[in-house]
Amino acid sequence: MTKLVIILLSAVFVNNYVLSRFLGICPFLGVSKKLDSATGMSIAVIFVMLMSTAVTYPIQKYLLEPNDLGYLQTIVFILVIAALVQLVEIVLKKYAPSLHKSLGVYLPLITTNCAVLGVTILNIDEGYTFIEAMVNALGSGLGFFLAMVMFSGVRSAIEGNDVPENFRGLPITLIAAAITSLSFLGFGGVVENLFS
């Protein structure tokens, strides 16, 4: 149980996918301008991360590994994620139109979000059990959510300021991201020591 809590907390804070592993930077910079789109995107990411871990983990353990097909990992995972995202979109459209309205638009963008493929591959590389892999996926998604929501706040604070001409737009956003990331650096080592 302690191990699960450690995995969860370190996925959210210490090894935050966006701010310390640099995965999913495109949506982080692209969709974080408004709080509601940042929240929508992050919830969709949490959902897809959990679903794709639940599907790819058994495929790797029971289909690819027993048949010595481990080298097909990348191809199979990206296909599964792409198909899953499509499927989720169709199901949501049919059975939960209101949810589809708020999340559906973000779903197609997630296929090429490297954080999702990253979490499925890392779960295998780290040698997690199924439960640990699911917890890690949840933690990574929550970490993404946290980073997006925090950063959209930071960006709305930058909005009204007078920024030097050459720094307008992307450069100042990246520098703000550096400072946000700096705050997450402070979590290093905290989680392990909490439970020792």
């Binding site: 307008r168 450069p171 520098i175 550096a178 990331s181």
Partner: peptide, 19 residues
Amino acid sequence: TMAPGGFFVFGLLIACVNK
């Protein structure tokens, strides 16, 4: 060499490109 430095250097480089 840590994560924040990556964002920082990238931001500066893009500002240089703009300039």
